[in-house]
Design a protein around this nucleic acid. Structure first.
Lengths: 237, 237
DNA sequence: ATTTTTTATATGTCTGCACATATTAATGAG
DNA sequence: CTCATTAATATGTGCAGACATATAAAAAAT
């Protein structure tokens, strides 16, 4: 009695997930090697490889050369967040986008930022404070620090017309960086800008980006009350 | 004059990224097709395919059959969040893990949850309130709702010994779901549990998971002040 | 002019094969 | 017994060729 051949990597993946769900293979178990699975499923080893590699990426399997493939002990769930352009995010929700620059200054980099962005001491940074709004209500504060050494063109840009968020995405795309999410309580200046109560809990994103090792920009996004960042935990099957 | 062959997919990827960075290909541009690139780079089409597909996954390229591959217009940055077991997260930081169950009840599902979890009206849920702590200081509140229809075994579990977070990960792994991040202000009961001030801004994660279409569990994690969720935006090169 | 059908094309993926590489396990030297 | 060397093995990845599939563009029909 032969099973119909699983001749594409998705169906192989599904079958593997089914076996894990069904308890055929339990957490920590070593599963058969690619060649054996390929024979069993009636497909090429490359197909099995694609399926297993994809499952390893999503955290269900642990794979190591020679050691083989085993079902992950602590399946670390991975969520993929898409970080959109703020204007796009607001427009996609069907609101009218608004934008205003509040302040623009050149200042020596504060110590906290200098270390975070790995800057030489005394580097001058461009500091911008802006507000994005949805249907004329404040949506998010963008507090932006830009390293002019990394982006000389920034000196001539009028950020009352285009947000740093958008300009940087267009002109300095595809850089690496890191990102942190947390909550803070609104202080007076923030509450004024977001038109909310002092002390209210606000969702905040800190992000800094660099190209190679040179720091480009660091930004703090402080969202108005009610903001939710949402995504999906998708798993095969 | 020939270029040394780019004979692995990583170097092909690097070269493509270099061309985008260097302005050879600009945002929105159509790039040569896989066959041409393979010829130019001196490798197989499959290798180019692997490289471009990976770049499309990370949002740098848009690809469509017949239409070809172009540099993404609005490169949507993607961050991958790893959502660990709470106990593991605390231990990894070098703290002593503590756990306590506060309450356990069986209650009719509140309307808000019933719709979110897509439950028939009047379903009874198991409701648990627990606190995880690090070095004896409250770290996060776990407010958990479990659908006993989906996980009958849950009735016999003593959640004063093991957290729902951990038990569910062990016994109902690999489910799909969705997740939201936001901020709230501490009310009195929350402030009591987290030993913080009323009104303080707190980081919150709402997550609900299901297998197929059946709702399994929904959880709200309310983190103590100061919590930061951190990850890396990594890009090829 | 508009709609439908056909065709051409770029990506998507499978196959079978080969070799590279990491890492465990066996072997041998001291 | 311990440490270094060697062999065995599972995954990682490359190649050439083939066919599948989506879809933009061209051709045909209304």
């Amino acid at each position: 009695m032969t099973v119909p051949a699983l001749n594409n990597w998705q169906s192989v993946q599904d079958e593997v997930v089914r076996r894990i769900h069904g308890g055929v293979w339990n957490q920590g178990d070593l599963i058969p090697n690619e060649a054996d699975l390929a024979r069993e499923f009636g497909c090429a080893r490359a197909t099995v490889n694609r399926a297993l590699q994809s499952l390893a990426d999503s955290g269900l399997l642990d794979r190591r050369r020679k050691a083989g493939t085993r079902v992950a002990m602590l399946p670390v769930r991975k969520a993929t967040l898409e970080i959109p352009l703020i204007r796009k995010e607001i427009c996609d929700k069907g609101h009218t986008y608004g934008y205003a620059q509040v302040t623009r200054r050149r200042v020596p980099s504060p110590a906290r930022l200098a270390s975070k962005m790995n800057l030489p001491r005394g580097t001058k940074l461009l500091h911008l404070l802006c507000v994005h709004s949805a249907d004329a209500k404040p949506y998010v504060i963008e507090e932006r620090w830009i390293n002019p050494d990394a982006v000389p063109a920034v000196e001539g840009v009028d950020f009352s017309q285009i947000s740093p968020n958008e300009w940087l995405l267009k002109h300095v795309p595809f850089s690496a960086g890191d990102i942190a999410f947390f909550a803070m309580s609104a202080d007076q200046p923030v509450a004024d800008l977001l038109e909310c109560e002092v002390g209210e809990g606000l969702f905040v994103i800190d992000r800094s980006t660099r190209r190679d090792t040179q720091a480009i920009t660091s930004v703090r996004l402080i969202f108005a009350p009610g903001y939710r960042m949402h995504t999906v935990l998708s798993l095969p099957t």
